[in-house]
């Protein structure tokens, strides 16, 4: 498993550039006046931006990495379920509650599926299992990894996350400066 996964980017600058490009694009779409008029709440807005940032990073990394796959899968799923909920709310407004439970159930089952079924479930009882479990929770898609893959993924994830944070910082500076 491991040798097939290349490190995402040899060049961190390239990674940052790609991420910034995607993220700014996503921000642009978020700041579409129609949408911005729609969601005024800060909380939702920041969540959307956060998700956009993660999405941008994960899509830059692509499907090479387990964590990016997991993030993309989660975001896609989340948007689906969100759309579902929104639809449901509308339906409730329209007094149409048919099929709701069925669809909800289906969505949940999809959500629970292992995003990376090829990877076999292997928990090794090591001394650091407590901390490893923590790390597993932090690194997306690492729930079912063995510890080598976990460390590998964590390395890559941290790399990308640091780049993401840096770019976001510069963007914030850029926006707040003017």
């Amino acid at each position: 498993m491991s040798p097939s996964q290349q490190p995402t980017e040899k060049n961190p600058t390239n990674l940052k550039n790609q991420f910034a490009r995607r993220f700014v694009r996503a921000l642009n779409s978020l700041h579409n006046p129609k949408k911005s008029a729609h969601d005024n709440q800060m909380h939702r807005r920041s969540r959307r931006i956060k998700i956009a940032a993660y999405n941008a990073m994960a899509s830059v990394v692509g499907s090479r990495r387990t964590w990016s796959r997991a993030v993309l899968w989660k975001i896609r799923n989340r948007s689906r379920t969100q759309g579902l909920f929104r639809n449901n709310r509308k339906r409730v407004d329209h007094q149409i509650v048919t099929n709701y439970h069925h669809r909800h159930h289906v969505k949940l089952s999809i959500k629970r599926r292992n995003p990376n079924p090829k990877r076999e479930v292997y928990f090794d009882p090591s001394r650091y299992s407590g901390q490893e479990a923590k790390l597993r929770k932090l690194v997306p898609g690492a729930e079912n990894m063995d510890s080598w893959c976990l460390v590998d993924e964590a390395t890559d994830y941290i790399n990308c996350l640091a780049a993401q944070v840096e770019v976001m910082k510069t963007l914030v500076d850029l926006y707040t400066a003017t």
């Binding site: 921000l27 978020l30 700041h31 006046p33 911005s36 800060m42 807005r45 920041s46 969540r47 959307r48 931006i49 956060k50 956009a52 940032a53 993660y54 650091y128 901390q131 490893e132 923590k134 790390l135 932090l138 690194v139 964590a154 994830y157 941290i158 996350l161 640091a162 993401q164 944070v165 976001m168 910082k169 963007l171 914030v172 926006y175 707040t176 003017t178």
Partner: peptide, 30 residues
């Protein structure tokens, strides 16, 4: 591992914070 976990958590928190900041910044700069 503790350090790594802390770092990842801090990064994730930073992302959250920055996104919040972006969210606050942007409307003002419409």
């Amino acid at each position: 591992l503790d350090e790594i976990i802390n770092y990842v958590q801090s990064l994730q928190r930073q992302v959250e914070f920055l996104s919040m900041k972006l969210a606050t910044v942007n409307p003002r700069m419409d």
